[in-house]
Amino acid sequence: MSLFSKPWKLTSGFIFGGVLVVAGFLLQILAGPVRWGLLASPVNLILLAVFIAFIIFAYALKGKVAFFAWLGSSAAAVPSIACTLLMTMIMGLTAQIPERGWLGNMITFWPFVLCYIWMTAVVGMVAVNHLRRLSRSWKEIPAVLNHLGLFVTLVCATLGSADKRELEMMLKEGETQTVAAREDGTTIQTGLAVRLDDFTMETYPSGMPKRFASDVVVTGKSGKAIPGVIEVNKPMEVDGWKMYLYSYDEEAGTESTISILQLVKDPWLPFVYAGIFMMLAGAFLMMIVGFKKEETK
């Protein structure tokens, strides 16, 4: 198994996966858990450029370097999916409570993260491969959509996570609020002025909640007062902030005069959506044509 000459196969892929997991363990010990917060812009943009450059570089050299040829093949897809699957299974079987150590916080566990990066690199290579063949055959379209869609979704969701802002804004009936709290409890000015006119909670005869609604008037950058009703599943958007109904005074129940909104701004969301819709279209086409079989090989 040489990096340059001997062809890499399925078995070498599983060895590579094992090495990756060991490397992850070492990183975890030496550098500590993955700190996703460090990825905030512009670091994520730089990493995106580096990752895409690596994929193009690897693709260009796949005729010369056996490792790169393998990285874009089904012989790498199988072990990379298997290793990522295994890591995700560990996550599914252990309670995700950060106080419980490494396995309680899998999304910051290096072996888990490295397996996902490996799988994403394979998906990226395969996407380029199918894209190149697209000019010769329209039959490549489902594979392009599936792989490129998954690549875009994974990359943008992961790199974008540090740029996502989630704030909580507490509103009292009749009052206007402009500040909101970060997760760590510190507050910031949102640039929005939100007045709560009325909070409504309806219940079923059993006492189970049926409907929550907050009548608000929001004044944004434009200075125009925008009236709206925010309900569960019905957020409102002003100046790029999506406002979700988050909580209320649970002790007061239907008498609550307090409504807590969640304000979310996620600049990478449109790209994640683009990836998701590519995958939806790809799945639809795969349903019609099936996946490629090479039984005769």
């Binding site: 089904s74 999916i81 995700t88 299974m89 079989k293 090989k297």
Partner: peptide
């Protein structure tokens, strides 16, 4: 996600080792 990847594994295994 685990379920989705498990079927993904089947599909790619069929392509990598069709026999």
């Amino acid at each position: 996600a685990i379920t989705w990847m498990a079927y993904l594994l089947y599909i790619h295994f069929r392509i990598a080792r069709p026999k």
